[in-house]
């Protein structure tokens, strides 16, 4: 008898109907940023590293919509080119960590036993190294740039995906519908890959979407620290780093533009990720 509780839930749970306009706006914004990044060489008004010493620290103007930096470089053009590393690097991290995480999580959650324990122990050790720390260590070992940090962050994030997948798979595995498949005579591989995995994928996907935001912010921070993308290459985090010196002199724009861009992209990604997980939350039986 689930009656009373169900009846009370009808009364109790106030479904916050999130307007999907925010979702739509976020998606459109991300689309625009992505297109700008892809077509930067075609649409950027100036080459990203074109120095114009007569026009340094300029405010917004028809020639430079977002002004110029301390070397007179066009901020808008640098933003477009900078979006390439800012978006591509976290994308690589998310794709890699999701694939590895799902495979390991599936293995641990479905097989259980000693494999689960060993993997769990390994994950525990990696959890003790925050992603950014691992990235910094990678730079210390292999030198500056984005390659080592991207690999390090993938390794750092994979256990998060794996642990989530593991717990979802393990809880699905104990559900009667899985027992029902077994009784019907389906093989373990079929049930795990074709039936159970698709049921947990949406949640893992939503989590990975959220991870994208974190990774983007962390890699930008790494460039801000001067350990990631190196000057003069345009990158949002590196741009904030370069513009930091101008802050004291009151030149906020060159630092604020990339900073705000990072925030907006992360907000958009979070809105999408949260709404995705909300939508799924309604469908997966609790």
């Amino acid at each position: 008898m689930t009656t009373p509780t169900m009846a009370m839930k009808v009364l109790r749970a106030p479904r916050v109907r999130r307007s999907s306009t925010t979702f739509l706006i976020s998606a459109v914004f991300l689309g625009v940023v992505t297109l700008a990044a892809i077509f930067a060489p075609l649409i950027a008004p100036y080459p990203p590293n074109q120095v114009d010493l007569l026009n340094i620290q300029a405010g917004p103007s028809p020639a430079h919509w977002l002004g110029t930096d301390a070397l007179g470089r066009d901020t808008l053009s640098r933003m477009m080119f900078g979006a390439r590393t800012a978006l591509l690097a976290p994308l690589l991290v998310v794709v890699f960590s999701t694939i590895v995480g799902i495979l390991l999580g599936l293995l641990a959650g479905w097989r259980g036993g000693w494999i689960d324990s060993v993997l769990g122990r390994i994950f525990d050790v990696i959890f003790a190294f925050p992603a950014l720390l691992l990235a910094i260590m990678a730079v210390a070992l292999f030198g500056k740039g984005l390659v080592a940090p991207v690999v390090a962050m993938s390794i750092a994030y994979a256990p998060f995906v794996a642990r989530l997948t593991r717990s979802l798979i393990a809880s699905e595995r104990s559900r009667p519908y899985v027992a029902a498949y077994r009784v019907q005579g389906f093989g373990g591989g079929f049930i795990a890959l074709r039936r159970v995995l698709p049921n947990v994928m949406p949640i893992v996907g939503a989590q990975s979407t959220l991870n994208f935001g974190y990774v983007l912010a962390e890699l930008a921070a790494l460039s801000f620290l001067g350990l990631g993308v190196q000057a003069p290459t345009a990158d949002w985090g590196a741009m904030v780093n370069e513009a930091q010196a101008g802050l004291i002199g009151g030149y906020f724009l060159p630092a604020l533009v990339p900073a705000v861009a990072i925030v907006l992209v992360v907000v958009a990604v979070n809105v999408i990720g949260e709404e995705l997980s909300d939508r799924i939350g309604g469908e997966i039986p609790a």
């Binding site: 921070a221 904030v240 930091q244 900073a259 925030v263």
Partner: peptide, 15 residues
């Protein structure tokens, strides 16, 4: 919280 959560500490610092 969603907006604040998107402000990395270096962005927060410079602002």
């Amino acid at each position: 919280l969603t907006v604040l959560g998107a402000i990395p500490s270096f962005v927060g610092s410079i602002v």
